[in-house]
Design a protein around this nucleic acid. Structure first.
Length: 111
DNA sequence: AGGGTGACGATCA
DNA sequence: ATGATCGCCACCC
């Protein structure tokens, strides 16, 4: 029973990342990097990706690489694109039109 | 304890 | 635009 709810710093970071991912609204997208920064990580994009990959029930298709690029490979990238297009997210070549769809996170609470 | 590994990102040739 | 490199963070042997 790995009932992890946030003991270690790593777990708290994970919870924070999960909350941010869940906060991206329908029709909008965010990047691994922006989420990492919103979570207070200097450069934890890879961690965001890992979290996304090891969790379920998240709007995973709304998370993209820098510049709005889909970073998945093969069929998965196709599914992601279809899911995005089904919520009216538009593309410019093979990247999402970030100009129109990038979700801005509120600045980190000036604690 | 140490080293390898990502759904990454920025930078440089 | 493409490929190599280095930095980052947590996880998995």
């Amino acid at each position: 029973m790995t009932a992890r709810v946030g003991k270690s710093a790593a777990d708290r970071t994970r919870q924070k990342i999960l909350a941010l991912i869940r906060s991206v609204p329908h029709g909008k997208v965010a990047t691994y990097g922006s989420i990492a920064r919103a979570a207070g990580l200097r450069s934890g994009a890879r961690l965001v990706a890992r979290t996304l990959h090891t969790s379920i029930g998240l709007p995973w298709h709304r998370i993209l690489g820098a510049g709005g690029e889909i970073k998945l490979r093969g069929d998965h990238s196709i599914e992601q694109r279809l899911r995005l297009e089904s919520e009216r997210v538009t593309f410019r070549g093979r990247r999402v039109d970030m100009k129109r769809h990038e979700h801005k996170f509120a600045k980190r609470s000036p604690r």
